[in-house]
């Protein structure tokens, strides 16, 4: 067992691939269609989207390692409950930290921090990856999927905040470059929930036109 670990270096091509694949070709949101619930609701502004991505990345990375360490001791029949308890414990940690250090953001995220528990990406990665893999590759996989998830969140939030309120992270871009003076008006529709869906739809469209092998159905 230990020889095998040493043979494969920590940053072998295979492990790096685990980290980078979910960012592009195997993105959890646009390709595997997991974890959309929370992805869409928190993207009206950039700040909560970033906080949400970091929280999910933490839960996914830590959870993957814990599950991977326990993978031989968890009884097959009750594994879902065990997984849910581990996720719930990690999410409680995140929630308490957010409430203590970033109260405003945690108010904005409201129930969606709690909903990380039922985020399908996490259950999906536990079932598909960390139940059958060693801790280090599981950690890479968790961080990679967290990054892929975060990337989509940040892209969606960037466009929604820029066109919806004319700001980026609260900094008034359009006012600074003087767009309002020549008659530009913020597109209020971008802040409303339906536009999140349409923006994600367009991202999927762009991604699939670039990688035709993703097209199925």
């Amino acid at each position: 067992m230990s020889e095998q670990v040493q043979k494969e270096s920590m940053f072998s091509t295979k492990n790096i691939k685990l980290l980078t694949d979910p960012i592009g070709k195997n993105n959890p949101i646009t390709v595997q269609v997991l974890g959309i619930c929370s992805a869409l609701a928190v993207t009206a502004k950039l700040e909560p989207a970033i906080v949400m991505s970091i929280s999910v990345m933490f839960v996914l990375g830590a959870g993957n390692v814990i599950i991977s360490l326990l993978r031989n001791t968890i009884p097959q029949r009750i594994r879902i409950i065990v997984q849910l308890v581990i996720i719930a414990a990690l999410v409680i940690i995140v929630d308490q930290i957010l409430k203590a250090y970033a109260y405003q953001v945690s108010k904005q995220l409201s129930v969606f921090v709690g909903l990380i528990i039922t985020n399908c990406i996490i259950m999906g990665r536990f079932e598909a990856f960390s139940m059958v893999n060693k801790p280090w590759p599981s950690f890479m996989d968790g961080i990679g999927n967290g990054l892929g998830y975060g990337m989509i969140l940040v892209i969606v939030a960037f466009f929604r905040e820029l066109f919806g309120s004319g700001t980026i992270l609260g900094w008034e871009v359009f006012k600074t470059i003087g767009l309002y003076d020549i008659g530009y008006v913020n597109n209020g529709l971008m802040i409303l929930p339906p536009m999140a869906l349409i923006v994600v739809g367009v991202i999927i469209w762009v991604q699939r036109s670039k990688n035709p092998d993703l097209i199925k159905d």
Binding site: V33, G201, V202, D217
Partner: peptide, 11 residues
Amino acid sequence: GPLKGIGITFI
């Protein structure tokens, strides 16, 4: 083509 399946479902 690229919009088929989930893309159009989102929109």
